Every structure is written in structure tokens, then in C-alpha cells.
Simulated assay, not measured.
Amino acid sequence: MGDISNVQIGVQNLTYGGEDLGHTNGGCEFAYEPEYTDILVDLYGNTVVDKALTGEVVRVTVPLAEVTLDKLKNAIPTGTIVEDTTSGKKKLTIGSTAGKRLSASAKELVLHPSWLPAEDKSFDIKLHKAVITSEVALPYRKDEQTVYEVEFTALIDETKQDGGLLAVIGDDSIV
């Protein structure tokens, strides 16, 4: 029989590289997408005898509600913040040469349920090395709040053990 206490609702607090990503509008979504290839042998024709893992994708989609240059810099990892220290003015420049690798700017992404105390990591979702790989669209409309959706993709972290190269759900301090 089911257990109603296991039903969850609520929002996540998000940190990226230790920085709070701010308010969201529309919730966030974690997705795990395995990719398999069929193993076939002549004896059984086109009947699959096994499947082999050929890849995995871990994504987190987040609609961000706070629009600042610093927060947009997270969304546009190849951009550069330029600041005039005397005036305090800032700008975000965009445009890089082809071939720039995102792994250099990958950071840890942590989703922590807002209803749990900070020390309770039992339902945390952590992407070890996350990068934003989505289009960034800033809608400016007279009757609508500006919310921009970003998609984080996990990259392989070779310092982790096989089976945990991309992410962890739960308390990461368990060895």
C-alpha cells in the first residue's frame, strides 16, 4: 500500500557554483535520459537479446525570474561581465569564437527542497559539473513578467565513481 507521507510538493532552492540563483517562476524539472543500443545475434534474428548503455543525459530546466546582468552571466556562460569600477556600471558582452569548451565554466548545481532545513540533504539533487546549454530568450511584454528558462546539462566528472559520474540524488556525504 502507498504512503501519503512520501508525496511531495513545493519548490526547490537552487545554487550554482555556490551562488543562489534567485527566484523561479514555474518550478524546475529534473530529467534523466538513458540511451541504449540493442544487442542482436543471428540466432534470434531481430529479437533483442540484451541492451547496452551507450550514454546518459542529466538535465535540469529552470524558469528564472530575477533579471540582473550577474544572473544572466550564469545563463550565458560564454559571455563576459565588464565593470567600470569608478562608475559602478556593468555590461555583459556576448560572442565567442567557435570551439570554446564549456567544461572550463562548469559548476556544481544543487536543488534543495525549500520545505527541508538546510542541513537535511535527503532529497537534494546535485549535478557535479553543470553547464547551461539552452537558448536564452528574454520576453519583454506589457502584460507579462520577464521569466527566462535555462537548461542545465551535466558533464562527466571523472573524479567520481562509475555510476555517479553525472549527478546524485540524496545526501552526498554518504560514502
Rank of each mutant, 00 (worst) to 15 (best):
F30H: 14
P34D: 00
E35N: 01
E35I: 12
T37G: 13
T37M: 14
D38Y: 10
I39G: 11
A52G: 00
A52V: 04
T54L: 08
T54G: 02
G55F: 09
E56G: 05
V58W: 03
V58F: 02
V58E: 01
V58P: 08
V62Y: 03
P63S: 07
P63Y: 06
L64Y: 04
L64T: 01
A65T: 08
V67T: 08
K71C: 13
K73W: 05
A75N: 00
P77K: 04
T78I: 04
I81N: 01
T86H: 04
T86Y: 00
T86K: 09
S87F: 09
K90D: 05
K91S: 12
L92E: 07
L92V: 09
I94H: 05
T97Q: 07
T97W: 14
T97P: 01
G99R: 05
L102P: 08
L102H: 00
L102Q: 07
L102C: 00
S103Y: 11
S103T: 11
A104H: 08
A106L: 06
K107Q: 15
E108Q: 09
L109S: 09
V110Q: 10
V110N: 15
L111T: 04
S114R: 06
S114W: 08
L116Q: 13
P117C: 03
E119L: 12
K121A: 13
K121F: 14
K126P: 03
K126I: 08
L127C: 04
H128L: 06
H128V: 05
H128Q: 11
A130H: 06
A130D: 10
V131A: 08
S134N: 02
S134V: 12
S134R: 05
E135M: 02
V136Q: 14
V136S: 04
A137V: 15
L138R: 02
K142F: 11
E144K: 15
Q145P: 06
Q145D: 08
E149Y: 03
E149K: 13
E151K: 13
E151P: 08
F152T: 15
F152K: 09
F152E: 13
T153W: 07
A154S: 03
A154G: 02
A154P: 03
D162C: 05
G163V: 09
L166H: 00
A167H: 15
A167F: 12
V168S: 02
G170V: 10
D171T: 14
S173N: 12
